[in-house]
Design a protein around this nucleic acid. Structure first.
Length: 432
RNA sequence: GGAGGGGUGGCUGAGUGGUCGAAAGCGCUCGCCUCGAAAGCGAGUAGGUGGGUAGUCCCCGCCUCGUGGGUUCGAAUCCCACCCUCUCCGCCA
């Protein structure tokens, strides 16, 4: 969330940020409530001071063997009033928090202003869209033909928007996960973590999913536990309510987890294939850094994610997301989009963001710049490195051959144990 | 799931109704000492928040001893609920 003190002293900057992000927030109400809360607080604190002084005097009188009953009676009344006014302040606090939690992060000045994805800016492009001298198939057809993806049975055991990976399809998924983790841990300096994927409400609030986006995720009935929509949630919350040692910074984590999304508002969109499913795998990159370095760290993080696509030799482009299209908690966001032949366009495969101190304030993650200095909020960043299901789809489609088989990218061959995915004459997968 | 013990500052740990945001030790910071270092000596060292101020220095107040309620003039201390943790028993991949 934003710093209330910042909002108080820079309301116009906040208003401008909200306008750029194309959201409406009750800023005037917030400022009014804040003003009211502070004056109430001042008054009740004076009463508390009086109560505390009186209590001390009671102790002194009793010690001296004097009567204190008049003072006790008076203080009893003060305590009663304190209780009532504390309740009023608690109500104000609650409403202030509610509004504050619903205010998104302010976009960085370097972010282009725009309404939606039409206004995003292509920053760079790697490779060219794959050319075929035959009619290419979509991954949902190729995968079913090769018996490596099974959508029908997934519907039976769960519902629509689920998939079963089978044979070399399952192995491709596992190969991609291992390849990505190996790359980020051994080449890019990330520490691997394997966190819980059931996370509590505090964690969801810490990274900004709650309270505003409750309908986007799955909740466990009867528990304060949610299926994490991304490893960003458990991994960022690793350091919730901590004061980090500055020598630790920057901290780089990468994590493979399954991710779960309700896709409530996406009915009818991307209904086929692996692009939009309720459960998918992802390797996530998360950073905790000193504030002054966070925008440089974002560039490095994006480069780390790009490296995956380059090594897989998949054509992609890098897009700077405009103010109206970026995420709720982000100050700056790049998306990587991979060429997807079935869509005839580039499709998002990674989203990399600098959250500045927005998540750190919500999750109370700080560091002490110098011994004895006041703690400051760190900056947090994260990005997909990459979404595994969509990567598998991109591999299947971009590496398909005229005979319906799929070449295996060079870097995956040692993980796959084969250089091609195909069926033998009996319709069995071969090459394992 | 059952029985019992316990959650105090960066760490260890004392504190069972008032003078306790909290002894002592460790750690850390600064100073003295030293050619330098160690040892020793001295001082300092929780977080949040409101106000004095335009201010991260300073001054005053308020809140916080797992969390939330309650009793009381007054709660780290007493009562209730919940969370976490340790030991034993049961169950279990």
């Amino acid at each position: 969330m934003l710093d209330l003190k910042f909002v108080r002293s820079n309301p116009e900057a906040v208003r401008e940020g909200m306008r750029k992000k194309r959201v409406e927030v009750p800023l005037d109400e917030l400022l009014e409530l804040d003003e009211k809360r502070r004056s109430e607080l001042f008054e009740v604190e004076q009463l508390k001071n009086e109560r505390n002084q009186n209590s001390k005097e009671v102790a002194e009188r009793k010690k001296a063997g004097l009567d204190a009953s008049d003072l006790i009676e008076r203080t009893r009344q003060i305590s009663k009033e304190i209780k009532e006014r504390d309740e009023e302040i608690a109500r104000l606090d609650q409403r202030i928090q509610e509004i504050l939690l619903a205010i998104p992060n302010i976009p960085d000045a370097s972010v282009p202003e725009g309404d939606d994805d039409q206004d995003n800016v292509e920053v760079s492009k790697w490779g060219e869209p794959t050319q075929f001298d035959f009619e290419p198939l979509a991954h949902w057809d190729l995968g079913v033909n090769l018996d490596i993806l099974d959508f029908e049975r997934a519907v039976k055991i769960s519902k629509s928007r689920f998939v079963v990976d089978k044979g070399l399809g399952a192995r491709l998924e596992r190969a991609l996960i291992n390849f990505m983790l190996d790359l980020h841990t051994s080449e890019h300096g990330y520490t691997e973590v394997f966190p819980p994927v059931l996370v509590n409400g505090d964690s969801m609030t810490g990274t900004g999913q709650l309270p505003k986006f409750a309908e986007d995720m799955f909740k466990c009935e009867g528990y304060d536990l949610y299926l994490a929509p991304t490893a960003e949630v458990p991994v960022t919350n690793l350091h919730r309510d901590e004061i980090l040692d500055p020598d630790q910074l920057p901290i780089y984590y990468c994590a493979y987890t399954p991710c779960f999304r309700a896709e409530a508002g996406a009915a009818g969109r991307d209904t086929r294939g692996l692009i939009r499913v309720h459960q998918f795998n992802k390797v996530e990159l998360v950073k905790f850094v000193r504030p002054e370095t966070s925008f440089d760290e974002l560039e490095k993080l994006v480069a780390d994610a790009e490296k995956v696509l380059q090594l897989l030799e998949l054509p992609y482009r890098k897009v700077l997301i405009c103010t109206g299209d970026m995420g709720f908690s982000n100050a700056k966001q790049y998306d990587l989009e991979v060429w997807m032949p079935s869509y005839g366009r580039y499709v998002e495969i990674s989203s990399c963001s600098n959250f500045t101190d927005y998540q750190a304030r919500r999750a109370n993650i700080r560091f002490r710049p110098e011994p004895g200095a006041k703690p400051e909020f760190v900056h947090t960043l994260n990005g997909s490195g990459l979404a595994v299901g969509r990567t598998a789809a991109a591999v299947i489609e971009n590496y398909q051959q005229a005979d319906g088989t799929i070449r295996v990218p060079k870097v995956l061959q040692k993980y796959m144990g084969t250089d091609v995915i195909k069926l033998d004459r009996q319709g069995q997968l071969i090459g394992i």
